[in-house]
């Protein structure tokens, strides 16, 4: 057995050597900080010096915090809506783009849809503030129909839809691009055969394109599920006293309660809970979509 292993090790030694830098990168920059964070979550809040272990105290503190449950609720609502809408809109956009015959028009739409993904959240936040400010473009447009100005940015009932829409607007183009690439790889003979059999475009979409995209869909859904509980940047740029109740998410809670107060233990416990939640959601999604099935 050992000889077989040794022989294989020797045979693939070049590949193992090539893998070493990658392994080192992940150990140093991912697993070590993760492990350190995990240990810190069981230690007292001390930025300097020795940190005595305090058992589950930090977890108890976080879970008992009145704002924690509200943050979980906000994170789930925003995250799940985002996941569904990112997926749906980007798929529809990719299917529409596939139907555009003019290459230039197609590429222009693709670029325009993809462009917001290149902007930082701070820029996106600024753009949305300009649009939805009380004296912004949206209200100027509504005034054309004699509609009273709406204070979009400070109306609690509009806070979540705005944040979700902002995310969809930013990321739709990116996921649509992934779908488009997958559509391009579908065997053209299938379409030809369908056409000979008298299938129209809609039938081709529902019977060829969508079934062919199953693998890509599963991957995108799993990727999106990883982000359900990790919304922070867009919240940070858009939060204000009027909408805080509706959009204060878990990572904002971790940032404000832990990091701003130098409470390393509390912040690590909060972050670990986010990670456990993410693993659970991703696991469920993988099972639900049959991601791991052959």
């Amino acid at each position: 057995m050992n000889t077989t292993r040794q022989r294989r090790l020797k045979k693939f030694r070049v590949f193992y050597l090539m893998f070493l830098p990658v392994a080192a990168y992940f150990i140093i920059f991912t697993y070590y900080p993760f492990l350190k964070g995990l240990i810190m979550s069981f230690q007292e809040n001390r930025l300097l010096g020795v940190r005595p272990f305090c058992g589950l105290e930090n977890y108890r503190f976080v879970i008992k915090e009145p704002n924690f449950l509200a943050s979980v609720k906000n994170s789930l609502i925003i995250g799940l809506w985002d996941m569904g809408l990112y997926f749906g809109f980007s798929l529809v956009l990719a299917l529409i783009l596939n139907e555009v015959a003019n290459r230039m028009v197609k590429q222009s739409i693709q670029t325009i849809a993809y462009l917001p993904y290149l902007f930082s959240w701070a820029v996106i936040g600024g753009v949305w503030a300009l649009i939805f400010d009380l004296q912004g473009l949206a209200n100027k447009f509504l005034s054309l129909f004699s509609v009273e100005p709406i204070f979009f940015l400070a109306t609690p009932s509009l806070a979540r839809p705005l944040i979700i829409a902002m995310g969809v607007w930013r990321s739709m183009g990116y996921f649509a691009l992934l779908f488009t690439v997958a559509i391009m790889t579908i065997d053209q003979q299938l379409f030809e055969a369908a056409r000979i059999d008298g299938a129209g475009r809609f039938t081709q979409i529902t019977h060829i394109i969508i079934p062919s995209l199953t693998g890509t869909m599963k991957t995108i859904v799993v990727l999106l599920s990883i982000g359900v509980l990790t919304h922070f940047d867009e919240i940070y740029v858009m939060v204000n006293p009027a909408n805080r109740r509706m959009i204060g998410t878990l990572l904002l809670y971790v940032y404000e309660t832990g990091i701003l107060n130098f409470k390393t233990g509390t912040a690590s416990a909060g972050a670990t809970l986010v990670m456990i939640g993410t693993v659970a959601i991703t696991g469920l999604i993988r099972k639900f979509t049959g991601y791991d099935e052959e």
Binding site: A154, N240, P241, A242, R244, R245, E256, T257, L260, N261
Partner: peptide, 12 residues
Amino acid sequence: RKYYDIMSKWMT
């Protein structure tokens, strides 16, 4: 931070 958040939220 918590004091500011609570006060500004309710008093807004």
